[in-house]
Each structure stands twice: as C-alpha cells, then as structure tokens.
Design a protein around this nucleic acid. Structure first.
Length: 623
RNA sequence: GCCGGUGUAGCUCAGUGGUAGAGCAGCGCAUUCGUAAUGCGCGGGUCGUCGGUUCAAACCCGACCACCGGCUCCA
C-alpha cells in the first residue's frame, strides 16, 4: 500500500485500517505460496481491499481456498503490526535486496516498491510495516495485531495496469473484503445478494422492459412495449419542464457529413470513440478500383481528401446549424433548442453493460445560445432544472462534480482565459442554486468545463446522468454570431445541457433505484383488474373501461387462475394497484383495492379509486 | 482494447467422453375459486458460433462472438 501514502488525504476509518491490514495479511499468505510475487499497491477500497501483484502463476478462484487457509494461519498467529521508520537509504537498500513487500531478501529487487520509493518526495518520512516475516513499504496505519481481523473472504481477481496507466505492465489485482466479525461479513454478502436482485439487467428482463440482442449488436438497446411506456413518460416529463423554461424543440438526423464533425472538432480527434465513417457508394467503388488499402482510406478520410458520413456522436453541431440557419438579434437571445437526440459512440467492448453503458443512446439534449450577460442566469436555470428533475424522480442521493480541465493535457481546446471565465460562471451558478459539488481535474469536456450529476448503481459504481457544460469554443469554430444592440456582430456563448443525460442510463438507474417497483406515473401497467372468477369478468371489463377512459394503464387478468395466483403474478410483475372484483364489489359498484406495497386496503367506490390514481399520477407521487 | 470467469429449453439451473434433464413459464383440457402458486396432459434444445482431437464431444483443445467482474477509456 503505497499509492495512498503519497496521496493520503483523510485518516483511515477503523474499518479501512482493518481492511488495509487484511491486504498485508493476504500478501503474507501469497508470499508463503509464491515467494517470488512482486507487490505494488494494496489499499482499502469501498467494500474491502485489494493488492496488486505480479506473478507468473495466474491466480484463479481455484487458488482462493489455499490463499484463505494461509491467511487464516497468519490471523491465528496473531502477529504484531510493527511500524518502522527508516531512512531513504535504508529503504532503497531493502528494496534493492527484494526485501520490501516480501518475507525477506530475495534475488530480485522489489521493483514496484523501488519505483514507489522514487516517487516519495525528499524529506517525507518513510515507514515500513512488519507483521511476522512480512515487511512492506507502507505509510500505514494498521490495526495492532493480525488477530484483530475478525472475518475475511477473497472476492475476486482482475487485472489492473500498474499505477492505472495503460503503458505500464498489467498486474493481477486480488480483491477481498474483511470485517470485525463473521456476522458482519455474512451480513455483507446477504446485502450484496439483495442488491443483485435489483440489478437492472436482471429486472429489465424479468419485467420485460428492454432487450439487447446479440444479432442487433452489443450495446444497442431495444425498447420493448413496457420499456417504451417508461421512456415516453420520462420524455413527457422533461418536455413539459423544458416548455416551461422557454425551450423550443427540434429534430435532427442520425447521420451527417464528416465535414460537419471536422468543423466541430469531433473528427478526427475522437475517432476512436466513434463508429467508423460511412462512405458514398461511388467513392467507395472508385477507391476499390484504385486498389486503395484500408490504411490509405483511413488516412484519406482523416486528411479530408475523401468525404463520408458519420453516425452522430453528439447533437450539438446540428443544433448549431439550426441556430446559424437564421440571423439572430440580441433581442432573440437566449435561444434554447432541445431534442431527444440519439447519438452513437464506439464504447470499448469491455465497457459495455446493460443500459448504463451502451453504444447508442438518447440524450435529453439541449443547447442554449446566449450573451455573456445572460450566461449566469442561464447556468443557474440549467443547474436548477438538473437538480429538480433528479429529485422529482426520487434520485435524491446524487453528487455534483465540477469537471475542470487538466492543464497538463493537450486534449482541450480554447483559450485559458475563456476556460477561467467558464469555470467561474459554473461555480457561481452552483452556489446560487445551493448545490454542493466537488471539483475534479481532467473531468471537463474537451470544449469546456462542466457540472455533472452523478449517481450510484446497486453495486456501487458511479454513473454520470445530467450535465451542464459551458462552451466558448464551438461558437468560435462555427463562426456563430448575433447582432448586438450597437449593430455589430457578436459571438454567442453556448451551454450544452442534458438534465437526465441518457434515457437508457437513466432507466437503468431508475430500475435499480425503485427495484422495479416504479411509482404509479411511471409504471408500464398501473392497475390490474383481478376478477375472482369468470362470472365477474364482465364487471372487470367495465372497470377496465372506466380506468382506461380516465387515462390509467390497465389490464384484466382474465385467466382461469385462482385469485391467489392472479395476485401473486401481479405482485411479481410489480403492478402498483390490483383491484379484486367479486360478487360483493359488483353489487356495490365498488372495487377492492390491493396495493403493491401495502396489501389489502379494502373496498372503495370505483369512482373514488379512479380519482385517487389520477391524483397520484398527476402529482408523480413516489411511495 | 486488456486480464480473469461464464455460455445447456423463454427463465433459473443439473448433466466430467457413450442416444440431452428438472422446476418455472408456454400450449391443451378440466376447475370458477375472496388477497402471493388448482390439477392432469402436451410441446419445446444445431448444448453461443466455427474448426480440431476421438470409433464417439454439451463435456477435451483452438479461434471467434456475447455476457459477468475488474482495468483502461468515457467529447
């Protein structure tokens, strides 16, 4: 564990300390089995710990029992964790001798420890930690003795690049988790199991919300009828909010000429993350006749000597063209264009998953063209909208992240002065809407800084949903202008914003958030009418008609199942309301209400129930 | 893209070289029932794809595809 010693920010919690010590115990165990293992970094992480190591033997899950057995021995030996401050020279000497991250001197130096040592600034204290024969370069802290580790388990093996850099060697990353007691460990796995039950990939299939088909392509989502209802409701919700905020809706095509994206800078700069260009049939034939190689074609495309079309990776260039299709007076600004725009990005195969990381997705996109003076107000409104829609959907547990550029990276465009202005404008707007945010370097868009709204999925992975981005750059590239009050042309500023981000990702997150039990307004099926027997089918149809007429999505369970089975099915399908109808209800003109979450609620008049459901839908009630 | 794992019926899974199985779902028939599973019967599989080893492959080997967990990436 050494990365952390360099970047140590907050003191470790007791649990982190225990897990960090578990990483050392795991390393000790591994060295007893494979003395030649080279260790890199082994920090505690959110749900446990890991240690990165290099070893010719590929560790698999079959090795876990052996490693765990060895770890148990180390815990049983109740070794003391000893903190040893050393001089730089001593540390280097030990690393050279292979004695760091090891059980003693070896014939090969502890190369990663050596590298880490070199990164420790002069003057900073260097400490070792020793438990039993195992000595490691480590800033600590640790628990007192190995016996303090109550319960642990290895949870996975993965690969990771040394220091997270693709250019560095790949190491084996062995994950584990540890707790003070066996009960807490067991509880953790129970919770994990619960979380997996709400995984949107599982629920999406069970509830018939979406389908991803191998033959259609990885990362390309098919929205089934039920999923389409969910999506349409979300789109309707956003459309209404945007209309209130003075947006106008536009439509644009899914492909455009490559030249458009050259002007915007998306091509060839980000071509690795785009579907490859489409080439006109005539050009393609001519090039083929000339015996043009793929490599040559790629170059010709890059240099702009052959034109083609691109599946759009972003909507902004097209919205810009709409803005630029007419002359604008300062009196017209701000102009706010919105579109549910579907974009296509070539995500790496290993990154695809469910609805949260896909290759084609629809953004609730929008672009605001405004003056310098209007920027603050427009940012304020965009951030306010972003927060409000997430809260309306019950996603209260989000965090905001201000993405700043990394001054050392070349991937950003535009003048430093404009970046500074844009960053300040975002900060001020965030303060005004009372949004707490964390600033992160290297998280900006290539054209400007952005404020992202980030949520977590059931297994703790973070996903960016909404975003608000300031852009001085694209207006420049497309030479946009408006006529100012002094009759001179002036450059507008652009704001890119998508309060929900991608509808696919949002739906994935929402499925997990609600565990499939959507609030009534979002539920694909809002009410299921359950006649006790065929005798009451006619009355059931009447109630269905009543509800359908009132705009409530309703079906009738007309099967010959017993009522218990009908209820069970409706519960499993997470329909918010069930209406049980038998002779009693039919005679009284009532419906016996059963809610998904509260069970039998007794009979009310059909009319009363309709009003109740309508109210919940209208108010977007979350139960 | 990289490392590791997985891929058998619509779903969940069993099947370690000798003619593919269960439960649920589906279909048919019977049942007409009061708040989480009525009974009986029937159909359903190029065992991810392609190639190899073998007298014989779901099973062993290789490549590819997809998915899962990470890493890198994420305009």
């Amino acid at each position: 564990m050494s990365e952390r010693s360099i970047a140590e920010k907050q003191p470790m919690t007791d649990l982190e300390r225990l897990r960090h010590s578990s990483a050392h115990v795991m390393a000790t165990a591994i060295l007893r089995l494979w003395p030649e293992a080279q260790f890199a970094a082994g920090p505690p992480v959110e749900n446990g710990f890991y240690y990165d190591l290099q070893l010719d033997h590929r560790i698999t899950t079959e090795d876990f029992p052996r490693i765990e057995t060895e770890m148990k021995k180390v815990v049983a030996e109740d070794q003391l964790f000893e903190r040893i401050p050393v001089s730089r020279e001593q540390a280097f000497k030990l690393a050279e001798a292979g004695a760091l991250g090891s059980l003693g001197p070896r014939n090969a130096p502890s190369k990663f420890k050596l590298d880490i040592l070199q990164g420790i600034p002069a003057g900073e204290e260097i400490t070792l930690y020793r438990n039993g024969d195992f000595t490691d370069l480590c800033a600590g802290p640790h628990i007192a003795r190995t016996g303090g580790i109550g319960a642990f388990k290895l949870t996975g093996i993965a690969s990771a690049y040394y220091k997270g850099n693709e250019k560095n060697p790949q190491l084996q990353r062995l994950y584990g988790t540890a707790f003070k007691s066996k009960a807490e460990l067991d509880d953790y796995f129970v919770r994990l199991e619960e979380a997996r039950k709400r995984d949107h990939r599982k629920l999406g299939r069970e509830l018939g919300l979406f389908h991803i088909d191998e033959e259609v392509g990885a990362g390309l989502v098919l929205w089934t009828p039920k999923g389409a209802i969910l999506r349409r409701e979300l789109q309707g919700f956003i459309s209404e909010e945007l209309r209130k905020q003075g947006y106008t809706e536009v439509f644009t095509p899914h492909v455009a000429k490559l030249g458009l994206f050259r002007t915007s800078g998306h091509y060839p700069y980000y071509r690795e993350s785009q579907f490859p260009p489409l080439i006109e049939p005539d050009s393609l034939r001519r090039l083929a006749d000339e015996g043009c190689s793929c490599a040559a074609l790629s170059n010709l495309l890059q240099e702009g000597e052959v034109d083609g079309f691109l599946l759009k990776p972003m909507n902004c260039p097209m919205h810009i063209k709409i803005y630029d299709s007419a002359q604008h007076s300062y009196r017209d600004l701000p102009i706010r264009l919105s579109e549910f725009g579907t974009v296509y990005r070539w995500e790496q195969s290993g990154e695809l998953g469910g609805m949260t990381r896909v290759r084609g997705f629809t953004q609730d996109d929008g672009h605001i063209f405004c003056t310098e003076e209007q920027l603050a107000e427009e940012l304020f409104r965009a951030l306010d909208l972003g927060q409000r829609v997430l809260r309306a959907l019950g996603l209260n547990d989000f965090r905001a992240r201000l993405g700043l550029r990394d001054p050392d990276s070349a991937k950003y465009v535009g003048a430093a002065e404009q970046w500074g202005k844009a960053e300040d404008a975002l900060r001020r707007a965030a303060e005004k809407v009372d949004l707490t945010f964390a600033e992160e370097r290297g998280e900006a868009a290539f054209y400007g800084p952005k404020m992202d709204f980030v949520v977590k999925d059931v297994i703790g992975r973070e996903w960016q949903l909404g975003t608000v981005q300031v852009d001085y750059n694209l207006p420049e590239r497309f030479d946009l202008n408006y006529i100012a009050s002094d009759n001179s042309p002036k450059r507008p500023i652009m704001i890119h914003r998508a309060p929900l981000g991608s509808l696919e990702r949002l739906c994935g997150v929402l499925i997990e958030h609600f565990a499939g039990s959507f609030p009534v307004w979002l539920a694909p099926e809002q009410v299921r009418v359950l006649p006790i027997s065929d005798k009451h089918l006619e009355y059931a149809r009447k109630i269905e008609q009543l509800l359908a007429g009132a705009g409530v999505r309703t079906t009738v369970a007309a099967s010959s199942d017993k009522i218990g089975a009908k209820i069970r099915l409706a519960q499993l399908e997470k329909v918010p309301y069930m209406l049980v109808l038998g002779a009693r209800e039919e005679q009284a003109g009532e419906v016996a209400v059963r809610s998904r979450s509260h069970g039998d609620e007794g009979a009310v008049s059909a009319h009363e129930f309709v009003e109740r459901v309508q109210k919940e839908i209208r108010e977007k009630k979350i139960d």
